[in-house]
């Protein structure tokens, strides 16, 4: 179970490309060729995972970008991290 102290980073098997400043991104899983699309919130989250980062730190950073209550953002990012982990796009550190 992922929680705020869980440290995660982008998988070496994944790469993503944004579509411009403040735009969504496409994510490619290199070993399988699976392709994903995501919105700006997910892209900003991925930007923070170039280096290992705790989920709590990611929440702190994204609160500076988005107008959202902390509890809501943390809940959404825990759910998102679970999806990314299940898809093999991020890894636990």
């Amino acid at each position: 179970m992922i929680h705020s102290d869980t440290v995660i980073s982008l998988s070496q098997d994944a790469t993503y490309q944004d579509m411009g400043d403040n735009e969504p991104a496409v994510i490619l899983q290199l070993s399988t060729g699976r392709l994903f699309t995501c919105n700006l919130t997910t892209r900003c989250f991925l930007d923070l995972l170039a280096d290992p980062c705790s989920l709590g730190d990611a929440v702190d950073q994204l609160l500076k970008t988005f107008d959202v209550p902390r509890e809501k953002l943390e809940r959404d990012l825990i759910k998102l991290a679970g999806q990314l982990l299940a898809a093999g796009l991020i890894q636990l550190n």
């Binding site: 392709l35 988005f66 953002l73 959404d76």
Partner: peptide, 14 residues
């Protein structure tokens, strides 16, 4: 200055 928040999405494409 903050941006309008949207719930994060992740969709697999064909």
């Amino acid at each position: 200055t903050t941006q309008e928040y949207q719930e994060p999405t992740l969709e697999e494409q064909e």
